[in-house]
């Protein structure tokens, strides 16, 4: 049985919720344009979609957590997957690239600057690899959260 605060339970649209910092929020679906803008912003920068929907504290916590995960992953000599070359799209590398790229602009900046080459002999290489993968995948989860908020399913 699902608990009442589970996101799978549709919230009552007329109900007032108090979210972070005693901010009162009424569940109200956003326009399709705003929903798309928030989701795309969330894909580009973790937490930016929440900022657009005025969920300031949540957005800040998500931004700090995910970007920190990414930075620590790079610092631990983790490997970032690069986009596969032509003809090699069906590969483990494609999946890894999809996961890493989920964090958006930080991935592009890191790849552009040649970071995340990975040092397999490093003691922390495996941890760094996992940090980078998880940072990207968590941001996809955050984008789904932005979508739910924009649709008025979640305060």
């Amino acid at each position: 049985m699902l608990k009442d605060d589970s996101p799978s339970v549709p919230a009552d649209p007329g109900q007032n919720f108090t979210v972070e910092a005693r901010e009162s929020v009424v569940l109200k679906p956003q326009s399709p344009g705003m929903t798309a803008a928030a989701c795309i912003a969330g894909l580009l920068v973790p937490g930016l979609g929440h900022f657009l929907l005025k969920r300031w504290v949540r957005g800040a916590l998500l931004l700090v957590s995910i970007v920190l995960l990414f930075i620590v992953g790079l610092g631990m000599d983790g490997q970032l997957y690069r986009p596969p070359e032509t003809g090699q799209w069906i590969s483990f590398n494609t999946l890894g690239c999809f996961a890493d790229a989920g964090i958006g602009i930080p991935y592009l900046v890191a790849v552009g600057k040649g970071m995340g080459a990975g040092v397999p002999t490093s003691q922390t290489f495996d941890y760094g690899w996992a940090y980078l993968i998880v940072a990207g995948l968590l941001n996809y989860l955050v984008v789904l959260d932005v979508f739910d908020i924009a649709q008025g399913r979640k305060p």
Binding site: D5, E20, L61, L62, S65, I66, Y127, V142, D145
Partner: peptide, 24 residues
């Protein structure tokens, strides 16, 4: 190893908590 898994657990649990629950 323990420090790495503690940092990982902390950051991931923050994201899980925010994305799966509604009230602070």
């Amino acid at each position: 190893h323990f420090e790495a898994l503690t940092v990982f657990a902390l950051l991931v649990s923050i994201v899980f908590a925010i994305t799966t629950k509604n009230t602070p």
